[in-house]
Design a binder for these strands. Structure first.
Lengths: 337, 337
DNA sequence: TTGTACGCGTTATCAG
DNA sequence: CTGATAACGCGTACAA
């Protein structure tokens, strides 16, 4: 790799000073039209591409945003990433993505990395399903950075958070089931102790209560498809008082249930109705297509960067946001009223 | 944000020169144990975190890898990303991911961005399904960077490429179908003119020929689920000589077919066998679980960075790699022999 | 409107 | 083994 063209090369060839070239690129308005043109030409000729790296130093800004998520491979997060990237790109920012795998240790390492890289802001969904404890050292590091949280809070850190209305989403779903004539609705639960699961379960219970329905049942799950599959099969083999509908804490589990029923020769939705949560891609490719509660993951990413960037560029204060869910009615629910 | 701790702060407090602090961090071996300890202590005390940004300048290395893909949201690529990230992280590199949306224009813009960011290397899957034409200007920019291609080549650019054996993968799949007694096998095609599709189709034809089978049929598709769905429904309504098995150019289309047959009340695999290609997540959640050809996407990412980093760190030359596919036998194929 | 000179935080070189 | 000093490429007060 031969030497790269610098701002000096352009300046010399155009017969101006480096500062003028710099101005042409950053504040074109304040330079005489004639010189501006001359400089622009030279830039083209030499196909000069400015060194953002070098520019970052005096500016004290990298135009990088750090993004810490559990796993890119999870569609929930890849959609989030896309939201983040799209907005970032529009504002001249680049995204540095890392996977925490829900490990606090990795998370800590990456936080240091991002600090070291001098990113202008960080978007993170805290590792671990349960509320984790953070050492004072980590908290202090986080406080040195401009951080915005997604979905999960961090005790002791006063950072704004973007989340969805889990309670309302679950409430709506169950209410819909009730409106379709269902009176025996089971909750296929996620991991206990996680805020996400608790909120969805509360939504489930409250809808039941509102309708004056006493029948309720929770099948313990862990957000995973295979577990739901096994639990359902197991349960249907020995239970006597079976539900007519299931509200699953997420789509993976709903799909696991779908699979179980398919093997049990129990028809969905004719014999049992199912609603999921998340609206992951493919929830519309199941048989039957899954009725589910949609999480605006893309929007979450978008909102997060928007507030972050506003805070960076215009020094505005960041505020928490709660996003609405949406009930996507497909074909896994039947009206038995 | 208050002023950040620098190497000078550490040096002063430890009573040494900045160079010594630098050495402690980069080449600990060459500094006296006693001073090293002293410096390490001071670093801890001040919780100093080095500024990689600043270090990048004199080093002329950013330890960033640029990754250009069509879309993070596509599981094919998110797996690739993960492979890239995991290896990068191990070697102290960070990844800058951008989405081209298969647009050459965006691709070009991002190439410039990555150059401007002074990434140490670029991994890209060229935009567009068909072979695209690149201007001399773009080619020259690409030649200035250390680039490694994924899956698709670029005419006029002599860059190494990582790809999978599409021909062999397709060949194996169809051969398997034949071994299961199928003699009328249809090809559900992807976009014509794309190398991926051509290679898979050649694999299909060659397996047929090898077995001396004359019956063949191609249903034109475009790699998309809904198209496959419609084509299949249409075809089954009016065709007379129906196949007993289908080899789809990718999983999306295979799933589209699955859906069509489900609605047509045609049982898979009892009445028709199906094989897909890609092994996307969820191909094991369909009914029945899809038999398919697995692409090692994670491995592709891994291989790409490995060669790239070797080239950066040890100035070794980069070589192209062709990866093996694997036939994943699930339940969408029946032995009718 | 333009140019000069300094600073950004680190590494590399060279002398000691 | 350690310290002084010159880059690295750009932005920006300040001077002209």
């Amino acid at each position: 790799m031969r030497k790269k063209t610098t701002i000096y090369d352009v300046a010399k060839k155009a017969g101006v000073s480096p500062s003028t070239v710099s101005r042409v690129m950053n504040t074109p308005g304040i330079v005489a039209e004639k010189t501006r043109k001359k400089v622009m030409e030279t830039i083209k000729e030499l196909s000069y591409i400015p060194n953002m790296l070098a520019a970052s130093m005096p500016r004290n800004r990298t135009n990088y945003i750090g993004l810490i998520i559990p796993d890119v491979t999870n569609t929930f997060f890849s959609n989030l990433i896309r939201g983040v990237q799209d907005v970032c790109e529009k504002h001249g920012y680049s995204v540095l993505v890392v996977n925490s795998d829900d490990s606090q240790e990795k998370e800590k390492r990456y936080l240091k990395l991002l600090y070291s890289r001098r990113v202008d802001g960080v978007i993170m969904t805290a590792a671990g399903y349960r509320e984790a404890k953070y050492s004072e050292e980590e908290l202090s590091l986080m406080r040195k950075m401009r951080i915005i949280l997604i979905d999960r809070e961090i005790n002791g850190l006063n950072a704004p958070i973007i989340k969805v209305k889990n309670f309302e989403g679950a409430h709506d779903a169950v209410k819909y089931l009730i409106s379709m004539g269902h009176k025996k609705i089971m909750y296929l639960a996620g991991i206990r102790g996680t805020k996400t699961n608790e909120e969805r379960e509360r939504g489930y219970l409250s809808a039941l209560e509102e309708a004056g329905i006493k029948w309720k049942h929770r099948l313990v799950g862990n957000f995973r498809m295979d577990t739901a599959y096994r639990k359902i099969k197991n349960y249907w083999h020995r239970a006597k008082d079976l539900p007519t509908a299931i509200f699953a804490a997420n789509d993976f589990m709903a799909i696991g249930a779908l699979k179980a029923f398919s093997e049990l020769r129990i028809k969905v939705p004719e014999e049992i109705s199912i609603i999921g949560f998340d609206n992951i891609p493919f929830s519309d490719c199941t048989f039957p297509p899954l009725t589910t509660v949609s999480q605006p993951t893309y929007l979450m990413g978008k909102k997060a960067v928007e507030t972050l960037i506003k805070s960076i560029d215009k020094r505005k204060i960041m505020r928490s946001v709660e996003l609405e869910t949406e009930l996507i009615k497909r074909e896994s629910v039947k009206n038995i009223g």
